[in-house]
Design a protein around this nucleic acid. Structure first.
Lengths: 226, 226, 226, 226
DNA sequence: AATGAATGAGGATTCATTCAT
DNA sequence: TATGAATGAATCCTCATTCAT
């Protein structure tokens, strides 16, 4: 029993160490960028010797992959759930934006790393990364494509581009906070931004447009009103 | 005259070398990424000895800065011209999107480097870059703010966020091409994308836009105002 | 016990590597000069990879500093002990010359590096070095100043200059050996040189010293006082 | 005639340029050290393009040689004149010290370069430099040797060492000024230092020694009293 | 599992030197 | 003569990775 206890403790602490390193990697990558930091920076942040990083991760690149997979993988899965659910397009879009902003609220550094490093080229396995990124775009592309067939999307809109634009709006909205263009401290700023992104994407920014949603008589079910 | 010609040729060729290096840097950075290439890769691409790069540029980072300044400076100036012109908001937005896409058509690699290697990364002098990036956002923020006062923008839209969203849509639209999500080869793809970004930003993606763009100015109660 | 032995061996060997590098640096600097050698020359001499040098020393310059600190620090401390001891000036001078020559006998290369590469050159942090060098001069300056008050030094001698001259005599005496002007191989050459430097400094080189050293304390008018 | 005039003017200006470069080299070497400066630093100081340096001097090393030869060559020649003159040892020593201090007053930077760079190893043609330095030592060695035979030097003094000590005293005396240990600004400081070096070398620093010179009834002819 | 000493490939940068003009 | 663009050998230094303990 004592053995088991110790073993369990040990194995738990193993995982703890690994998690600590992953956490540290997220923070250090977010702060200095993947190329701008050393493995030993990550190790110091995690409070371990740099050699230990290699016990848990193949190499520096795999560490970034792990950060990416951890944050992105969950996000993609959740986006897929939403995109493949039965709700109307409007609700789906709203939910996806909420997912992204929620992730940002929970772990802004992780979002930052993913946003910042995702498009940088040779550091990562392009195939894997691009496809990872592409995968969300593709998922939503399908979502928009099907919505288009159902008449939930304007007929002249390219589904791929819709998908890209949605994430572009989300990303740059978040970037505005990351860069300090928007004050993320002020109460409710993130919620308002989230709302505006959704609304703008759906109805545009010009006056008199949003009102249509009423006219059409299809008030979208809104999560927060549920 | 011949002398003058030669002299002019000589002095031009000095600048030519510098330009050649800058061009090479754009292409090599776009191809392999800033961190993924060596100065000597740039030099080889430019057909010069690597030492010459240091004759014209302080160091590798300054070379990237130069790429940025060259491409971004012109873009910002043109955006400012548009933003401060007298035309209605809709035309301004349309013109700004066109500017970005035109830059991409003229020099996709430069756009790629600026978007992928510079606009995000902590690799460079953040103060300078952030302010450079912020500057366009601020310019358009003012544009949207003034439009809002004139009733050209929905009253609940935050000008900063509008600005961020516009550039987010543009950037991710371009990214879709950069990553190959969209086929930039097909005739007119860029033009259609450009149009869609503009329209989506202005009118949203939900159906009914076509009607509306004909019968603008029909106010009605909105859901949240109910 | 065996474990302890190994552990002790290990911890000692860490320091041993550092010492080996320092030793190698002394020899290589002495042989080829600071600017004339590469870090990898030092590393090879020490039998380690060049990267390890940077594990123990900040950079090449700090390595030279370390050589200096090691050799000079001890010397200064010993000079201070002598200078602040209670013995008469003559004995102090004798002891200081002995210190320097002893250092040369024990480690001629270290003395060479300190004299040739450090004591003069603008290559290093002048503030630190000058003050290091100045410190001995100042220590002895005080020694001569106090001796002067006690009448142990000619009343028209400037203490600072006495100090400088003493070390000048010592240094050039050693330099004569370093440059091969004097044959350091011949038995007792160093001892004789040491003695001559001391005697010359104390009594001058003109004839009549032998008498005087027997009948000290016979004042008479001096030429300039005539 | 016009041609001659121009030619003469041209050739004169050639020499002027060369002299300017040499002057610049002296100053820059003195300021930053031979290894611490670039050819272009020298060229800038001289107000010429760095390429021109190679028109007048083989390479960087030859430039240092030229500086050395210029300053040292004259000094050695003058020392030889003194050493081989018929005057008594005491006068010779006095004259040699005066030569050195005079050189310092006329061109402290040149003296600094020669003093500082002379002993540094691989930068220069050791054979040439050492022999250059050795040559003065040898010249004076002979001087002391002959003086010893005539009984003008203590019988137990090694001529080589006497020579080394003399220059050691001179050099460190000058170094005291170079390092700011002595205030070279104060009126007459150099003269007093010069005097003290001479006197100390001849009669030592202990009290009651100098008086001998009177007792012996051989007042040395002193230049300043001439 | 954990440490950190040790390794060495890799690449940025410098600067003496050349040479076309 | 004079210039400074151009070259490229030389070297410092970094840091991912390994491995003995």
């Amino acid at each position: 029993v004592a053995r088991n206890g110790r073993a369990a403790g040990a194995s738990r602490s193993e995982t703890d160490r690994q998690k600590a390193i992953l956490r540290a990697a997220i923070n250090v990558f977010a702060e200095k960028g993947y190329h701008g930091c050393r493995i030993s920076d990550v190790a110091r942040e995690a409070g371990v010797a740099h050699g230990l990083v290699y016990h848990y991760f193949e190499d520096k690149e795999q560490l970034l992959q792990a950060v990416f997979d951890l944050g992105w993988g969950g996000f993609v899965a959740r986006v897929r759930d939403v995109a493949e659910s039965g709700q109307p397009l409007e609700s789906k879009v709203r939910a996806i934006v909420e997912l992204a902003f929620h992730a940002y609220q929970v772990d802004p550094n992780a979002v930052k790393v993913i946003i910042v490093e995702i498009a940088r080229s040779p550091a990562l396995d392009r195939a894997r990364l691009d496809s990872a990124f592409s995968s969300v775009v593709r998922i939503c592309e399908r979502m928009f494509g099907e919505a288009k067939e159902k008449g939930e999307l304007q007929s002249d809109k390219h589904p791929t581009l819709c998908s890209a634009l949605l994430f572009g709006a989300i990303e740059m909205g978040l970037t505005a906070f990351l860069l300090g263009l928007m004050d993320s401290g002020s109460q409710g700023a993130l919620e308002r931004a989230m709302l505006q992104i959704t609304e703008s994407f759906l109805w545009g920014v010009l006056p008199g447009r949003a009102d249509l949603s009423l006219k059409r008589g299809k008030p979208s079910s809104r999560l927060r009103e549920a």
